[in-house]
């Protein structure tokens, strides 16, 4: 079983985000593998441990993304491929076509990715890659079984779950709950450097074109307002609270 896992490097979920001139200040912010992609990677490693094979992690981005790829290698992936986009203007469409191009020539049975990245939350790349490669796709998957050349995927739908069966090769996007990702282990970390990490550029892949999406501005969510306390006797406070809920918060 040859598995390709698409990963994105994102800001740490615990990072303090600062914005300057409409851009997120990246300096000094810890970067991690997008948590949903980590579920995808963990699933790939489990499938490999069960039935053998090869796990290739692929990412698009700048030089710094090599760190995320090395982490994936330390967790147990066999090889890594970086689609170098340093300095290029890209959007989800360009990233997806580049990733699709990068893996189109390879032999694989399964492509896994997170269903979205926690930074932009656009949830587009997995789906676009599947479309470009002509693969069946199942999204937001919380349980995955691979057998007899098929993938049996349980996914979240409103009010419950549904089970979808697709023939391989297929693209599956991971949701929280699929598994509990492992820590890399010490040996994995020391071996990661010896594993293959290839780099291809957008032009080598023949991917060009201007982004179709332009980010005009980035803003932080408004600061949380201080709560309001009603401190009179119970009867008065309740009356005031009801008034506030009706007239100010407009929720009743």
């Amino acid at each position: 079983m040859n598995i390709v896992v698409l990963i994105k490097q994102t800001f740490d979920t615990e990072a303090k985000i600062a914005i300057k001139e409409g851009k997120i200040v990246a300096d000094g912010v810890t970067q991690i593998i997008n948590p949903y992609d980590e579920f995808a990677l963990e699933e790939a490693l489990r499938i490999k441990e069960k039935s053998g094979g090869d796990v290739l992690v692929v990412s698009a981005g700048g030089e710094k993304v090599k760190e995320a790829l090395r982490s994936a290698l330390a967790m147990g992936a066999d090889r890594a491929l970086l689609v170098e986009t340093e300095g290029a203007a890209v959007d989800e469409g360009i990233v997806a076509s580049a990733l699709a191009k990068a893996i189109s020539g390879l032999s694989y049975n399964l492509v896994l990715s997170g269903w979205k990245a926690i930074d932009d939350n656009s949830a587009q790349v997995g789906g676009r890659v599947a479309e470009t490669l002509g693969l069946p796709q199942v999204n937001v998957v919380t349980q995955l079984t691979i057998e007899d050349g098929k993938a049996l995927a349980v996914r979240e739908v409103e009010g419950g779950t549904e089970t979808v069966e697709v023939p391989l090769p297929a693209l599956i996007t991971a949701q929280r709950g699929l598994n509990e990702p492992r820590y890399p282990n010490m040996r994995g970390i020391m071996q990661a450097k010896k594993k293959e990490l290839k780099v291809v550029t957008l032009s080598e892949l023949g991917v060009s074109g201007a982004p179709q999406v332009a980010v005009k501005n980035v803003v932080l969510p408004p600061a949380k307002q201080a709560g309001k306390l009603f401190r009179d006797d119970v009867a008065t406070s309740v009356a005031q609270l009801v008034q506030a809920l009706r007239n100010e918060a407009k929720v009743i």
Partner: peptide, 14 residues
């Protein structure tokens, strides 16, 4: 080095 940092991060997460 990158390995030293990765080992530190692992120990920190743990």
């Amino acid at each position: 080095t990158e390995e030293q940092l990765a080992l530190r991060d692992l120990a920190h997460d743990f």
